[in-house]
């Protein structure tokens, strides 16, 4: 797929854009016949090797937008383009790390990692050895034969990460993957992710509600407004040097300047979402 794009006329520009959301809007049909627009037409491009985060208040539709890029949700208008081709069905070039536990509880850690390779036709032996190497890389040597319920939340996330990386996807999509973890584990997982990503720099779209996490990890932070009809309201370049260590980078003065700048945009939206939520609950 990639090669055809490179050979096309506007090769230079097209080869760099991996994911292009072109005026993508997402609406749900309601029972009373009306429709609810979760995401207003949004345009966003992610280039090769770029780490992009989407931040926004809870319930703003960031995950919905991510699901559109994965092909798990079909846009009500606009189009999703992957390597310049319109996405139809699931995005086979993408690996998706879910917020919730998505491991198969009846498979051991190593089988969970190997399964993506096995269903793609790899011989079991080879799949297992690749999986074992990946478990080593995410720091789970010796945990290969554990079942998910015998692992901690952070360890399960590591298995999930290995599972996604096993298929060597060209695009990585992550939906608040470290959301359920405690603060220390999140920092460790963030460092692990940066470390792994640094090695082959795939296009990565990362959804989070944690602005600090977004800045520490990303090349670009995109801010989304509160729902309904959420829009992209800010696009900030994070030019902090790499390689980064999350705990260290968070005390840098440039980090704070960026944080202040983005937070100014995000703040009003968070307040809006909060007030809206208060009203809804009553």
């Amino acid at each position: 797929m990639q090669e055809t794009v490179i050979r096309s006329a506007d090769a230079d520009a097209a080869s760099r854009v991996v994911v292009h959301l072109n005026n993508v809007a997402i609406a749900y049909r309601l029972k009373d016949g009306g429709s609810y627009e979760a995401v207003a037409p949004a345009t966003l491009s992610i280039s090769e090797g770029e780490f992009v985060s989407i931040v926004g208040p809870t319930g703003c539709g960031k995950s919905t937008l991510l699901n559109a890029a994965a092909g798990l949700t079909t846009p009500s208008s606009g189009r999703v383009e992957i390597f310049g081709r319109r996405l139809d069905g699931l995005n086979g070039a993408a690996g998706y790390l879910f917020q919730e536990d998505a491991l198969m509880p009846w498979k051991t850690a190593i089988d969970n990692v190997a399964i993506g390779l096995e269903v793609a036709g790899a011989p079991r032996r080879q799949a297992l050895s690749t999986a074992r190497a990946l478990l080593d890389r995410v720091g789970l040597r010796g945990f290969a034969d554990r079942y998910p319920h015998q692992l901690s939340g952070g360890q399960r996330k590591r298995v999930g990460l290995a599972q996604v990386l096993a298929r060597q996807p060209k695009i990585l999509l992550m939906d608040e993957p470290f959301g359920p973890l405690d603060a220390q584990t999140r920092i460790l997982m963030g460092d692990l992710l940066l470390n792994l990503w640094q090695q082959d720099r795939k296009a990565l779209l990362f959804v989070t509600h944690d602005l600090e996490e977004a800045i520490a990890l990303s090349d670009r932070v995109v801010v989304m407004s509160s729902g309904p009809s959420s829009r992209l309201i800010g696009d900030f370049r994070i030019d902090l040097p790499r390689p980064r260590h999350i705990a260290d980078i968070r005390v840098e003065p440039s980090f704070h300047a960026l944080h202040r700048e983005i937070w100014n945009t995000l703040k009003t939206e968070v307040q809006k979402a909060y007030e809206l939520g208060e009203g809804k609950d009553l």
Partner: peptide, 30 residues
């Protein structure tokens, strides 16, 4: 079957037959 596990299995490239074998069948058996 948890919809998240199902979505994950699909994103891992499973077709209907493989979903049967690796997801639906173990869940039903349990």
């Amino acid at each position: 079957v948890s919809p998240v596990i199902l979505s994950n299995a699909r994103m891992l490239g499973m077709n209907e037959r493989q979903l049967m074998r690796h997801v639906y069948w173990p869940s039903a058996l349990s």
